[in-house]
Design a protein around this nucleic acid. Sequence first.
DNA 1: CATGAATGAGGGTTCATTCAT
DNA 2: AATGAATGAACCCTCATTCAT
Lengths: 206, 206, 206, 206
Amino acid sequence: MAADKREHILATAEKLFGDNGFDGTSVRDIAQHANVNLAMISYYFGSKEKMLEALLEHRANYTILEALNKDESLTPWEKVDRVVDFYVDKIMNNLCIHNIMMQGSNSRSEVIKELVTKIKLRNFEQIKKIIIDGQKKKIFRKVDIELTVGTVMGTISQTTLARNFYAALFNIEKDNEEAYRKKITPKLKSHLKQLLHAHLDINSEE
Amino acid sequence: MAADKREHILATAEKLFGDNGFDGTSVRDIAQHANVNLAMISYYFGSKEKMLEALLEHRANYTILEALNKDESLTPWEKVDRVVDFYVDKIMNNLCIHNIMMQGSNSRSEVIKELVTKIKLRNFEQIKKIIIDGQKKKIFRKVDIELTVGTVMGTISQTTLARNFYAALFNIEKDNEEAYRKKITPKLKSHLKQLLHAHLDINSEE
Amino acid sequence: MAADKREHILATAEKLFGDNGFDGTSVRDIAQHANVNLAMISYYFGSKEKMLEALLEHRANYTILEALNKDESLTPWEKVDRVVDFYVDKIMNNLCIHNIMMQGSNSRSEVIKELVTKIKLRNFEQIKKIIIDGQKKKIFRKVDIELTVGTVMGTISQTTLARNFYAALFNIEKDNEEAYRKKITPKLKSHLKQLLHAHLDINSEE
Amino acid sequence: MAADKREHILATAEKLFGDNGFDGTSVRDIAQHANVNLAMISYYFGSKEKMLEALLEHRANYTILEALNKDESLTPWEKVDRVVDFYVDKIMNNLCIHNIMMQGSNSRSEVIKELVTKIKLRNFEQIKKIIIDGQKKKIFRKVDIELTVGTVMGTISQTTLARNFYAALFNIEKDNEEAYRKKITPKLKSHLKQLLHAHLDINSEE
DNA sequence: CATGAATGAGGGTTCATTCAT
DNA sequence: AATGAATGAACCCTCATTCAT
């Protein structure tokens, strides 16, 4: 089916863009890896850049965060933990698109830059709500919300952007993605939770 | 002088690589911006990639950290604060090379990847020493050292990689690097210090 | 109806070929402007070149000239004037196909070249007859018939091929086809008639 | 030498553009026929279109006309005859560039269109002067100067644009450029002179 | 009849690099 | 030391056409 093929191309592009960067990936690479005629990329997406846009919009569907926020049965602490779990899982299972978004900020295309910024802003707003809610309930203390979110995202990013570094640090064989994920995911979750608890807990002494 | 010209080319390349990425920058771009004959780049550096290597080695001279560690008059807390100040200043005044290093992890060149990993490891070791020292002195509690360093680096990275995002968040006009730096630097320093204190303080309740 | 659609495609192709040339017009352009599925062009005409052939044959139906020649009630001068009127009107109301025929002589396709030559020859024969008839009747003097016809066709062609030039000369706003036609048509007719009279009149002194 | 090579490329392009049209000629064709590396075209001219511009400007050096006009020892009739000789020789020895200019009016590039128009206007002005001078001296009668020039140019154009047609007419073997030139040139000159004399002579009866 | 999908060939251009001078 | 010229490979994209449905 046509939609399947489109999907397949996008998935292939995601992997390659994630590994080699946008400029480092040629349309020929994508066509070859996807076992698809070169002209199909233009046919389906119009251009290489339009394909990246499609990719970003396609993968940026983080509606779960919004659902999480609406769940009033959860305490702010539970929400924080779930956000950590969600993001870590999301990114660790989706290293590529995350890499792409990081690189995307450096794209020469204004369209891409704005798209990435838009996606980030949307996600940020959801986390911000959680923290503000916790502050209103006198559970979280006053912190720099923007940079706190930056800390969460940045810490996770490090493990994907500097993957080689961490693989070396933890003695994981290079290019074994599965092993890396298994080793890092629990460490990352527990580190972030511990970090955020210490950081946000209103009872923590400064 | 020849050395000056080499330097000038490297500085130009740094800016362009930082802004547009390695693949997004052509040797012609560099030659033109540096007002230098195209063939000079190959002449001086051998190849585009060799130039990136030269750039990384040239800029990665973080000997200050080692000096910091040897200063026994400072308490671990003071050292942590100084590391934060040092890194934030370093990166904020050197956005380009930092961007390049982040991208470098995704380079298709194994040489570059290893070089970047090596630089990161060297820096990491210094910070690790500080934390272990604090733990030995019963001032810092037990934390995941690797990821704690990742948090510091990642948080700072966020502000450079996702610069557009934070510029939008803080209402800073795009492309005004100076304004961005002035606004972010103090916020970043204080956020990281507060974060690390809560995270590392052995008296903090868990 | 199918015939209507074929006609519609041909009309669209005529306009585009006339404006942008054969090579400068893509089948996609035609399909899009004609609001017709891309594959229909091949379906109806077999190929792009076959479509041009169809176009030429379809538009080259200059039977009127033959009728004119058979009308024995007209003097050679009247016939000349009518030929001028006929051709000027024909070409001025049909700039596109005329452009196409001019370009067609430069086509890489032998089929097209021969088709264009054939059409031109057929028209030429009719005019030749008129001139010879006038000469036989001692009304026209001896002239180079081939080049005299070339002068008529060439003069008219100039006003379509070098339209921009003449528009500039006569202060007609570019792209206003209607204004151009209105301005040029009467000037062209009267110029050609005057020219031919002086040229052909046996009483004219050399 | 570099200038020679540039010249050689231009000459090759002129032939191919003249034969197959601008769109009908690929940069690869030119490179191959000129025995030159493909990238040289961009290297020397920047782009295919820029090359056409260079070609037009390079060939449009009709300064002789201006010299002719300044020669006060010639009568208007002599000037007219010389213009005819000049143009016929010029075009017959330079079929390609003339074809190109004709096609250029239909170019999709505004730059090219304007360049062609500019060249034509410059040439037109010179001929116009001759005719007006003859009219002032009561030698030429009142005619439509613009279209008279159009007649001269158009008649000559016909013999190049409709070359196949005239070759068929005069029984000249196709693709024998030399034979065509030899046959047509004198006929064309004498036809045009006769035509213009009859057209312009103030003593000619209307 | 009609169409969306697909294809291989070729389009113009730019790349990093090297060579002769 | 320095450079203009040159190169072959690769870039993204569009072409006219065909095919299965």
